[in-house]
């Protein structure tokens, strides 16, 4: 099964599940990636020149049973990968691509900890409200900000139910060449889109696995043979604020 078949955007749902399942079988091993992670990601790298396909829906599953309170390996990995290292006197003016939230059930007292970031909605409110179309969803489900047309109105921050969007409050230097970011635009988690396009895992997922927690897995929700799809089929998972029916790409287990 070749990758090219992924390109037929208008294919019926039934057809693409078959195609995606077959594609999931072939894992391309990129340099520096452990085999176990590749099997999690099921990331078929697209050949150069090929657009992202809507046959793929990238998603993440976070197991709160394995996520430790106080551990912020994923937050640190995100900051390192995306060079979110600017100094701000007021922490609220700094960028928050991913943050840890400690949750306690008010009456019973059951507690759990989880990372919160852009949930990569299938129906993203940020995309609906963006006046210029800068806030966008890529064919494979990744929600991004096109900084070239972002005017910094911050309406998407108003619309996001997860506080996942941040506004860059000051001039930046020292950006990662692969992760451009700068003053006056809104930004958020992009699932490490450049890494995914190279067949690598998002930095947070990689760091969580490296530290031995394995609380985060990443993969193609549309591919029934991927680990994430199998886990979601077998265990109870939660979409946060499911009442809004945004069809999230990030799911949680153990809430």
């Amino acid at each position: 099964m070749s990758e090219q078949e992924h390109d037929t955007g208008g294919a019926s749902r039934r057809k693409f599940i078959g195609a995606a399942a077959a594609a999931g079988g072939m894992a391309v091993i990129a340099p520096g990636i452990h085999l176990i992670e590749v099997s999690q990601a099921n990331a078929p790298t697209r050949p150069p020149g090929e657009a992202a396909s809507n046959l793929v829906r990238w998603g993440m599953l976070i197991d709160t049973n394995k996520c430790t309170a106080g551990c912020d390996d994923c937050v640190k990995a995100c900051a390192t990968e995306n060079n979110i290292n600017e100094k701000v006197a007021d922490v609220r003016q700094g960028s928050q691509w991913i943050r840890k939230i400690e949750v306690k059930e008010a009456k019973g007292g059951h507690t759990f900890s989880l990372p919160m970031m852009c949930q990569h909605c299938a129906e993203p409110p940020c995309v609906d409200v963006c006046p210029t179309g800068a806030s966008m969803k890529r064919a494979d489900g990744i929600v991004l900000v096109d900084r070239h047309s972002c005017i910094g109105c911050r309406y998407c921050m108003m619309a996001c139910p997860y506080k996942a969007r941040s506004f860059v409050h000051q001039p930046l230097t020292g950006q990662n060449p692969e992760v451009p970011r700068g003053q006056g635009c809104v930004e958020s988690c992009n699932f490490c889109v450049t890494r995914i396009d190279k067949g690598q895992l998002p930095a947070c997922v990689e760091s969580c696995a490296k530290a031995g927690h394995h609380a985060m897995i990443f993969g193609d929700l549309n591919d029934p043979s991927s680990e994430i799809a199998r886990r979601i089929a077998q265990t109870a998972t939660t979409q946060i604020r499911a009442d809004l029916r945004l069809d999230l790409g990030v799911r949680y287990q153990g809430i």
């Binding site: 939230i101 306690k104 059930e105 008010a106 919160m116 604020r241």
Partner: peptide, 14 residues
């Protein structure tokens, strides 16, 4: 109110 009915804390005003 991201987690209705829950008490939450975080580094970013949750």
């Amino acid at each position: 109110d991201i987690f209705p009915g829950m008490e939450v804390t975080s580094t970013f005003m949750d």
